[in-house]
């Protein structure tokens, strides 16, 4: 499943335009602790987090993450969105909680 397909399947908002929508997703990872993500996330994963600090982009870049998914319709600073676009990192946003988005993505990846 591709990032763009996930966004339409789950009705997610794409905050970073066309960036990285063709990237294939292999797995999901839910965590709000950056050191945990650095240690444990796999490549090509969608990272579900409520963290919106600009440091999330460094982690995404370092671990070659497919997309960042922000729950609860939380707001991001424009600075973070602009930097993500410049760094070719897709940021998606959903209305559901992290628990629900994890559940939905888990199901979606299983069906592929």
């Amino acid at each position: 499943m591709k990032v763009g397909e996930l966004a339409s399947a789950l009705g997610l908002e794409v905050l970073t335009g066309n960036v990285n929508l063709d990237r294939t997703i292999q797995s999901g990872y839910t965590s709000d602790l950056l050191s945990d993500v650095i240690a444990n996330i796999e490549e090509d994963a969608v990272w579900i987090t409520i963290q919106r600090h600009i440091n999330i982009l460094g982690v995404a870049k370092l671990k070659d993450i497919a997309a960042i998914l922000i729950p609860n319709n939380l707001q991001l600073d424009q600075e973070v969105i602009d930097k993500a676009r410049a760094e070719s990192i897709a940021i998606l946003r959903g209305r559901n909680t992290a628990f629900e988005l994890s559940g939905l993505l888990y199901n979606a990846l299983k069906e592929v």
């Binding site: 797995s27 990872y29 839910t30 965590s31 992290a98 628990f99 629900e100 559940g103 888990y106 199901n107």
Partner: peptide
């Protein structure tokens, strides 16, 4: 956490 949520969600646990 991701799998834990996925498994519980699949069994009908709600947000």
């Amino acid at each position: 956490m991701f799998d834990c949520c996925g498994l519980l969600f699949a069994r009908g646990v709600q947000a």
